[in-house]
Design a protein around this nucleic acid. Structure first.
Lengths: 145, 145
DNA sequence: CTTGACCTTAGAGTGCACTCCAAGGCCTAC
DNA sequence: GTAGGCCTTGGAGTGCACTCTAAGGTCAAG
């Protein structure tokens, strides 16, 4: 078995573009996150190019998950501070975590409800069931493309 | 029992601000949604004020749920077109719905994973368990406020 | 050692979803 | 009938999260 020493990945093999490709982000976005304090300044090569290890992938995935919760980057930064240091610059860490967990539960409920709506809509589609829509209802304007 | 006649709510009791208060949106936002084709043009009083019934609350809640999924307003409009008319101006309705349901499932998985992360972080907090963070790690800059 | 793809920076630009503004009109409680 | 709060419109402004640009430097395959 490999000895993955400590918490920081010392195998710095990825460029900023390669890291981005791993998680579906552009290099610019990753540099923007660094500027914004979401990720630590990356170690550099002698020629000043950023190098990343696997741990950066985890961090970006965490950020993406938090973003899907609807958090702003500054709020995600607070969450990452808890992850990194065990406390938060603005409020008790445990309180913050509890708060966010409750939000996730609410969000899970909302999404589950939306899912049920969509399933119901799919079932009601012509070919799948009775309730054809009545004609003459308002239709959204077709200003597409 | 009350006869709630047909699909369209004929009890138009709410002003745009009252409707907004019901779902946590500002009047401007609701008018913006109307302009964007997400909600049908509201019936007006003789003095040209919008009036809404309960069905508008449902529609806005649906929009809010879809937004939490990360959909753009134009994509939500397509979903609403399916809801209203049974088909979509741009792609087969059933395909669209299946696609969105799969997205929701992926999102539920992501949020569940994030929730587990946060619970783990809460458990690791000083007072709750062993793994105190080592000092000397990078801390995000405190450029708050 | 060259070549071409990728990297660096600061700063400007984009797209989305609001959010506000000004000038004027409506509605309802008194 | 009138006062004050809410309504109307078109258009401008805001905040966020990117996303792009220009001018130049680095990296690694051949």
């Amino acid at each position: 078995m490999l000895d993955v020493s400590a918490m920081t990945d010392t195998n710095l093999t990825m460029s900023v573009a390669q890291l981005g490709a791993r998680v579906g982000l552009r290099p610019d976005t990753i540099r923007y996150y660094e500027r914004s304090g979401l990720i630590p300044p990356a170690p550099r090569t002698t020629g000043d190019h950023r190098r990343y290890g696997e741990d950066a992938v985890d961090r970006l995935r965490f950020i993406q998950g938090a973003q899907r919760l609807g958090l702003r980057l500054r709020e995600i930064a607070d969450l990452l501070a808890v992850r990194d240091t065990g406390n938060c610059p603005c409020e008790p860490a445990e309180q913050l975590l509890r708060h966010r967990i409750i939000e996730i539960d609410a969000e899970l409920a909302r999404l589950t409800a939306l899912r049920a709506d969509l399933v119901r809509m799919a079932d009601a589609l012509p070919g799948n069931g009775p309730p054809d829509p009545e004609p003459g209802k308002w239709c959204p304007p077709e200003m597409r493309r």
